[in-house]
Amino acid sequence: MGDVYQALADATRRLILDELSERDGQSLFELCSRLAMRHGVASSRQAISQHIAVLEDAGLVRSHRSGRTKIHHLHTEPLGDIVARWVRPEETS
């Protein structure tokens, strides 16, 4: 679970998750464009790719190839462990 916390600690990675939450199944180019236009993130594609790799290692993003393009999807299952750790059952109703 430590990888999830580490992945969420970075603001750019949280923005990537926000973008995938809003529009799942994006390529690196699409994510870079949305981050630049909507959030003013001026990171290189290589830097964003490294952020995505951290998110993949934490299990928060899953990716697959479609031809020459790698498509990224939000995977929220690891967040369930965080919720289960601190949220009481009566708070989820």
Score class of each variant (00 low, 15 high):
Met1Ser: 15
Met1Ile: 08
Met1His: 15
Met1Val: 09
Gly2Trp: 03
Asp3Leu: 05
Asp3Ala: 11
Tyr5Gln: 14
Gln6Trp: 09
Gln6Lys: 14
Gln6Glu: 15
Gln6Gly: 11
Leu8Pro: 02
Ala9Gln: 13
Asp10Arg: 08
Ala11Leu: 05
Ala11Ser: 12
Ala11Ile: 03
Ala11Val: 08
Thr12Asp: 11
Leu15Pro: 03
Ile16Gly: 11
Ile16Leu: 10
Ile16Val: 10
Leu17Ile: 00
Asp18Val: 13
Asp18Trp: 15
Glu19Leu: 08
Leu20Lys: 04
Arg23Gly: 10
Asp24Ile: 02
Asp24Phe: 02
Gln26Gly: 07
Gln26Ala: 08
Gln26Asn: 08
Gln26Phe: 02
Ser27Lys: 04
Ser27Gly: 08
Leu28Trp: 01
Leu28Tyr: 04
Leu28Lys: 08
Phe29Tyr: 12
Phe29Gly: 13
Glu30Val: 00
Glu30Gly: 07
Glu30Gln: 11
Cys32Met: 07
Ser33Asp: 14
Ser33Gly: 11
Ser33Leu: 07
Leu35Val: 01
Leu35Lys: 07
Leu35Asp: 09
Ala36Gly: 07
Ala36Arg: 08
Met37Lys: 15
Arg38Cys: 10
His39Leu: 05
Val41Arg: 04
Ser43Pro: 01
Ser43His: 11
Ser43Gln: 13
Ser44Trp: 01
Ser44Val: 00
Arg45Cys: 02
Arg45Trp: 00
Arg45Ala: 08
Arg45His: 08
Gln46Asp: 07
Gln46Trp: 00
His51Leu: 01
Ile52Cys: 10
Ile52His: 04
Val54Trp: 03
Val54Asp: 14
Val54Phe: 03
Val54Gly: 10
Leu55Ser: 03
Glu56Asp: 02
Asp57Gln: 07
Ala58Glu: 11
Gly59Pro: 02
Gly59Asn: 07
Leu60Pro: 03
Leu60Ser: 03
Val61Cys: 08
Arg62Asn: 05
Arg62Asp: 03
Ser63Cys: 02
Ser63Thr: 01
His64Glu: 14
Arg65Tyr: 05
Arg65Met: 06
Ser66His: 14
Gly67Glu: 03
Gly67Val: 00
Arg68Gln: 07
Thr69Ser: 14
Thr69Gly: 12
Lys70His: 06
Lys70Phe: 02
Lys70Pro: 06
Ile71Thr: 05
Ile71His: 10
His73Gly: 10
His73Thr: 14
His73Cys: 12
Leu74Asp: 09
Leu74Val: 02
His75Asn: 12
His75Trp: 09
Thr76Trp: 06
Thr76Arg: 10
Glu77Val: 03
Pro78Met: 07
Pro78Arg: 10
Leu79Thr: 01
Gly80Val: 06
Asp81Val: 09
Asp81His: 13
Ile82Pro: 06
Ile82Trp: 09
Val83Leu: 07
Val83Cys: 05
Val83Asn: 13
Val83Glu: 09
Ala84His: 14
Arg85Pro: 12
Arg85Gly: 13
Trp86Lys: 13
Trp86Ser: 12
Trp86Arg: 13
Trp86Gln: 13
Val87Phe: 10
Val87Met: 09
Arg88Cys: 05
Arg88Ser: 12
Pro89Glu: 04
Pro89Phe: 04
Glu90Leu: 06
